[in-house]
Nucleic acid binder design. Structure first.
Lengths: 231, 231
DNA sequence: GAGTGGTCTAGACCACTCA
DNA sequence: GAGTGGTCTAGACCACTCG
């Protein structure tokens, strides 16, 4: 394992274990260098990672401080760690509505390329505790994800993908708000015309190839989101 | 100006000028080093910045490639460059509804601290071309932003803040979806009960001190959002 | 002005991709 | 196996904060 990632993970665990709160100061660079037995640049790189993940902020000439806003129960829109990581105090579950191998619909072919002849289509309802969180419709390239079944789709598909040794690189997410049609409203257990946030996502491998296209519609009363930004 | 920032800006301008599209390859590191006359680490750092801004992706052993998803007219939720940067082909305008110095409401005091005795409150409607984009209610600390007037609030407050030499560090954003009450719906020109996305934001200085608290409610038909994520 | 973080360099070595 | 990006080091120097 890479040194800077290992150090970043240890620091993250340390912050969480000690339950440090916003504004608390971390040891200075020189101490961290000695503590972990590495050069300055390696510490700097580990801190950069934590900064990008929104766990700390650095103030030149002053120190490194913990960044941990207080609100819970919000889904993180930047980390792609899945709901289990975002909502640790809740029980997550999925009900698979359909799972099949099909020819990609046009909107999906537009993303994967016209040479893509087959995809997995998965539709599932995701629950937080006893409540509906969202309806998800996703498409995976069958030449990358060779095998999928209902049992896998009941858990975290992304964890399964990572276990296959497939490296997820980055993603584009598009958000819109709309009034629900009757079919979707029924599935979510709300009224036709009620509001919903729809997030359209494209996930890419580290190589830049798209492999997952999904559209998720969230129950407006059961979902809240947050973003930690550095700009 | 810092070398790596200067190089990153030049590369960004170059990508936009040449109108490179997703997947196109940039020159290799050795060439970039020579081109800009700097060491490898400086190029690496410039590329890291572009990667974080979602403009490129790097593939070890292969090359550096352009990342530019095709959809326009989406508001970027990560960059805090304001609508003008996100929606370059549109005319943006603001109408100031109220601007006053007041004692902070409780929700604002909870963020700024109870020692904060005075804030600017600004409520404005923001337009995209001829359409209402959003209703924004924001609070600024008067000990940091000493002066504000209606003319400034008609333009970009953040640009004004930067011109004052105040360095914006990072922000937390919380998103929820709801049905509009009558007052807000009237202002946005939609019906009571229509859907809306509400984004609650807290902006911090580089020192970690919060200085702006705002709540923005978006017109659901006139607004779309995107996020480019690297995880 | 002392302390602390940020930038930059040159160079060694590692890890991945692709023909 | 050649090519290309990623990590890591040691050290010089710069820039900001704070008492």
């Amino acid at each position: 394992m890479l040194k800077y990632l290992e150090i970043a993970d240890k620091m993250e665990a340390w912050i969480i274990e000690k339950d440090l709160s916003q504004g608390e100061k971390l040891p200075k660079l020189a101490e961290l260098m000695e503590l972990y037995g590495v050069s300055k640049s390696t510490i700097v790189k580990a801190l950069e990672r934590l900064e990008n993940r929104g766990l700390i902020y650095q103030v030149q000439g002053s120190g490194v401080f913990v960044r941990r806003p207080k609100r819970a129960d919000y889904v993180n829109l930047i980390d792609n760690n899945g709901f289990t990581a975002d909502l640790p105090t809740h029980k997550m579950a999925s009900k698979v509505l359909t799972l099949r191998k099909i020819k990609p619909p046009k909107k999906v072919q537009a993303v994967f390329g016209s040479e893509q002849t087959e995809v997995y289509e998965i539709r599932r309802l995701r629950y937080i505790d006893a409540d509906v969180l969202c309806l998800e419709e996703s498409y995976f390239r069958t030449d990358i994800i060779m095998y999928l079944n209902e049992q896998i789709a009941q858990g975290s598909i992304f964890n399964y993908v990572r276990e296959l040794g497939i490296a997820i690189g980055f993603s584009d997410k598009y958000l819109t708000v709309k009034k629900l049609d009757q079919k979707t409203a029924d599935l979510l257990g709300v009224k036709t015309g009620d509001p919903a946030l729809t997030i359209n996502e494209i996930y890419y491998l580290t190589s830049g190839e798209p492999f997952d296209y999904s559209t998720t519609t969230y129950h407006y009363e059961n979902s809240k989101f947050f973003i930690q930004s550095n700009a």
